[in-house]
Amino acid sequence: MEGVSYQRFPKIKIREVKDECMKFELRNTDASIANALRRVMIAEVPTMAIDLVEIEVNSSVLNDEFIAHRLGLIPLTSERAMSMRFSRDCDACDGDGQCEYCSVEFRLSAKCLGDQTLDVTSKDLYSSDHSVVPVDFPDSTGYDSPEQRGIVIVKLRRGQELRLRAIARKGIGKDHAKWSPAATVTFMYEPEIHINEDMMETLSLEEKQSLVDSSPTKVFDIDPNTQKVVVVDAEAYTYDDEVLKKAEAMGKPGIIDIRAKEDSFIFTVESTGAIKASQLLLNAIDVLKQKLDAVRLSDDTVDADDQFGELGAHMRVG
């Protein structure tokens, strides 16, 4: 079997792309790749987040650490993050987080003068770099008045003041969740649903209806014209087995057969807004590649080739 490659050519079919979320299909690969992609998206795609806060004045009701924690969790636009340096291996500034290559400075200064409580939001953060700013949600559908938007940091009452300097740095979600660009990354196996039409014919309309209704999600329906049970949305199926159980209870096991396609996944990615969902995917693939490169190129790998044998050859080819 020497030299036989198991290389596969995964395909991605994008179904839906918005700035903050996307859905795509990943085909012709296995769970390990799909999961690696998911894990990298959550934990290893770098973003910017506030990491150091210097508080000058804080007379708000929340204490300094509290505010620092809240600031850290505010997502910052980080398109530039991939090209920036981690402050720990920044040559320009010895990693003290003061230079433009690895850090961005923010300032916040708010004081409540009126009788109404003042919401200090992420909009009050002034960045030294226009490309790294707190995430804005332009299409939050008219929930609040326009100036109210932004993430609330603290509320001030008359006379209270908050003044601080914050430094955002590049980081990854593995170190702290604030650097994770992904709100949700999940995938499911694509279900394959077969309806045994012959057996289905034997059911009465009521029986069909009860079979259709037994699924908590809307997977099946009855065609109003042909009165046949049809699959309306296979992906709505949550692998809950309810339909199968129902079929069994009706004494018709095998009337519906559901299998998970082992090699095709449906991904849902939601971004925190730090980077666009599509970019998140691309960055994740980049990071994944870099990681694989690191494995492939290191001397250890070559040494270990003998041990890995076939796998080593496979990787050299790919």
């Binding site: 959550i42 934990a43 979600g173 593995k174 999940t186 995938f187 949550t238 692998y239 849902t268 939601e270």
Partner: peptide
């Protein structure tokens, strides 16, 4: 445990 090692549902 890190979040990426945690189990997840298909709703995320």
């Amino acid at each position: 445990i890190q979040q990426e090692d945690f189990p997840f549902s298909e709703r995320g």
